[in-house]
Design a binder for these strands. Sequence first.
DNA 1: TCTTAACTTCACAAGTTTCTGAAAGAAGCG
DNA 2: CGCTTCTTTCAGAAACTTGTGAAGTTAAGA
Lengths: 166, 166
Amino acid sequence: MTTEPAEAGRDPEAVSKFVEGFAAQLVEAGMQRMPARVFAALLASDSGSLTSAELGETLRVSPAAVSGAVRYLSQQHMVAREREPGSRRERYRVHSNQWYEALTNREAVLKRWENALSEGVTSLGADTPAGRRMAETLAFFEFVDGEIVAMMERWRVHREERFGRG
Amino acid sequence: MTTEPAEAGRDPEAVSKFVEGFAAQLVEAGMQRMPARVFAALLASDSGSLTSAELGETLRVSPAAVSGAVRYLSQQHMVAREREPGSRRERYRVHSNQWYEALTNREAVLKRWENALSEGVTSLGADTPAGRRMAETLAFFEFVDGEIVAMMERWRVHREERFGRG
DNA sequence: TCTTAACTTCACAAGTTTCTGAAAGAAGCG
DNA sequence: CGCTTCTTTCAGAAACTTGTGAAGTTAAGA
């Protein structure tokens, strides 16, 4: 009996095609290529987690590339790292059914935009046309901040109706 | 009396500092550098519009660079091009107070994500753990689609209360 | 404590991207 | 119709990114 990889019994080509296609979307949305590919591979795995070696193998890249990608992804809170007990291996896990909530946790990003705009209002002058345009944009971002929180609450209700507690 | 540039009477250094800072945020969010700088410059202009020559001058780049950046921005519907009557000059205009609504018009982007996910569900199998994860993610995107439309309606009301019809 | 598997860091080569100058292409105006 | 002004296209140089191999670090297990 050979050691079965966790993801046996699937058409590897279909999986690979999905992984690369989804990664391409992420790249287009601004993510770096390697993190995008690693993330897509995790998303397409049944367990939602893979080891560094498995990632290197399915994506045909070096351990160094996996290491860099995973560091990025965990900084973005898109994957969690966990140590396999009794082993030197590390597993990387996509936060099961809530990974996409990270997309809306742009707290830090929005705050930086708001800071930039706020400086703009000050340095261009709140009473100038450009300053007023900035101020309105800033108000929009602040509005969105709040709306997103409310939206996510509605989603969780909606989700439970459709999928149960997951 | 010298020919005043439209944006006279402002501290050019403060303006430039804002432009570069805001452009940097846009770059970090995935936009290419030159379109980001051009867009930020338009945003910081009092009239909300600049000619190609003015853009080249304030950003210190060649006409060719402006041309490429502007093509990108108008494809994204972030700026409008208008011809100055009685002149060969073109003006590029940031859609005054509604440019940021373009950020939420991600119709096409969301649809592409949804397609990719939908293919994922099919190719990985709707009855597999990975397939179910995909399906839930897809449902999330569809939910967000609808929520964004409703949010923008609320924003317009909110905006009118605060800023009037603009 | 030593060995060894696993991950990380680093310098560099390969590959892209980006901006420029030059030349070609439009369009107003006489 | 041709001159002139402005914009676009294109090939190539420069700068930046990205992934690799190799060396270094960490920690499990004997």
